[in-house]
Amino acid sequence: MDVKYINPFLNATVEVLKTMAFMEARAGKPYLKTNHSAPGDVSAIIGITGHINGSLSLTFSSSCIIKIVDNMLGENFQEINDDIKDAVGELTNMISGVARRRLSEIGFCFKIAIPTVVSGPGHQIKHMSKGPTIAIPFDTTAGSFTVEINFSR
């Protein structure tokens, strides 16, 4: 998978969390994902079609997403509930939207679908294409999350 498809999603992730949740996110070492297991407590996945096809997912630890949504909404959540799940979907929507804009600026046009949110112990993420899935772990002061990018080539 070409890095030019990956970097816009990573930069968008950092930008969206900084702007909407006042949170700094530091990217760790990317790795090739070889199973469907979600590395966290709640995930959202969104389909991407166009120049190439695939999907983007975000998976958050409970502590991380609760702090993010607390910051976004000025509330004090205690657990993953419908509000938190909705926010995970909206964050995924925003991140894919920013990445889509950046990719269009370098000539790659994509459409994005509406995200699906899944949660609970042992939940799985099933990406849209049979191509490779790259996982990028992120760390924040409130915990970790992982971005996965899957493209058909």
């Binding site: 949504v69 909404l73 000025g74 509000d83 909705d86 926010a87 979907g89 909206e90």
Partner: peptide, 12 residues
């Protein structure tokens, strides 16, 4: 907005 999160942010 279809996301309640964004409706709350705008409302705030």
């Amino acid at each position: 907005d279809d996301f309640s999160t964004m409706r709350k942010i705008v409302r705030n």
